[in-house]
């Protein structure tokens, strides 16, 4: 399948490789990411309340 078109918008943007695509749906990796995102958001919330 062709992902990009030369000299079109898509010809100048990065696209994900196979390993990145795999990680986006890898449940174990995503559980770690879930914890990480929640931690980041919690820090953000704590820093934002004054």
């Amino acid at each position: 399948m062709k992902h990009i078109e030369q000299y079109e918008q898509s010809g100048y943007t990065p696209v994900s490789g196979k390993f990145t695509l795999f990680l986006r749906n890898c449940v174990i990796w995503q559980i770690i990411q879930f914890a990480w995102i929640n931690l980041k958001m919690t820090i953000l919330i704590v820093k934002s309340h004054h």
Partner: peptide, 11 residues
Amino acid sequence: FGTIGLAGHWV
């Protein structure tokens, strides 16, 4: 930061 994946969907 920005990230893409299933985890964000759970969030």
